[in-house]
């Protein structure tokens, strides 16, 4: 370990600029799907209030990493901890921990049989044991914040993709999460709806939410990210500020990748 580095107190984290006050610590994580080594010795620490954008070519393991953080995927070796607490195995403790980790999916995954309001209040009522009236009040506030309060009594299928994704964000926020994970939240959206979702996310970042965001939206990365993590073939190849990474990528893989997405 490097004694000159002030952040060397965080064990075995090899990224150059490790935050002082860690929220998510991923340490030596490995995972296979059959023969495929999808996560290779991943080390990453995300500080409280930090926004980390993860990018990389298709199949590089970004989604798997994201899902491993709230144990939607199991890992074979290494440890992941949230706010100092290691991820529990199955059961109630895991459910408790997941309540503290918000997750927004590419395909929204709203509960199709529940109204928008009930989508947002389900977790607070069942997991946080809030009263129905408290949960409703909070839902109204959150829906207002993401700009879909007028749709509260509709069903998910009646909303546009952008609206659904904003509801999904509100649903996560209703749990009062310590960290939010986003897995390509705008990839399934029509282009004209991308910004309405990104705006909500930028707002969250400004308010100090800890966020791990898999996205290829350079605009978001430049505007909101503290660090960019570049993955390829299951490895973290490069970590840097958005400025460094986009203007001066060090690895050939990153240069190649940026060349491809920037020419679009």
């Amino acid at each position: 370990m490097d004694d000159v580095n002030p952040t060397a107190a965080v064990p075995s984290d090899r990224t150059p600029d490790t935050p002082r006050d860690p929220m998510v610590v991923i340490d030596g994580v490995n995972k296979h799907f059959g023969d495929l080594h999808v996560l290779r010795d991943i080390n990453l620490t995300v500080g409280k209030g930090e926004v980390v954008v993860v990018l990389g070519p298709s199949g590089s393991g970004k989604s798997t990493l994201c899902r491993a953080i709230n144990r939607l995927e199991t890992i074979e070796s290494g440890t992941i901890s949230i706010d100092g607490q290691a991820l529990p195995e199955e059961g109630k403790p895991l459910a408790q921990l997941r309540a503290d980790v918000g997750m927004v999916f590419q395909s929204f995954n709203l509960f199709a049989h529940k109204t928008i309001r009930d989508n947002v209040t389900l977790g607070p009522i069942k997991v946080r044991k809030k009263s129905k009236s408290d949960a409703d009040r909070q839902a109204t506030e959150l829906l207002k914040r993401v700009g879909v309060e007028a749709q509260a009594d509709k069903y998910p299928a009646q909303l546009s993709g952008g609206q659904q994704q904003r509801v999904a964000i509100a649903r996560s926020l209703a749990m009062g999460p310590k960290v939010m994970l986003f897995d390509e939240p705008t990839s399934a959206l029509d282009p004209e709806m991308v910004n309405e979702v990104l705006d909500v996310m930028v707002g969250l970042a400004k308010e100090g939410m800890t966020m791990i965001v898999v996205t290829h939206e350079m605009g978001f990365a430049r505007k909101a990210a503290d660090r960019v993590v570049f993955m390829a073939d299951g490895q973290i190849v490069e970590v840097g500020t958005p400025q460094e990474f986009f203007t001066n990528p060090r690895s050939d893989r990153a240069k190649d990748f940026l060349g491809k997405i920037l020419t679009h």
Partner: peptide
């Protein structure tokens, strides 16, 4: 869709709660 069960787990519902609230009604 499988994603709904994942979303249910992701907001911290237990297996039983996901069944009762999300999976079985649908």
């Amino acid at each position: 869709p499988a994603g709904q069960a994942e979303a249910a787990r992701a907001i911290g519902l237990t297996f039983g709660q996901s069944l009762r609230e999300v999976l079985l009604p649908q």
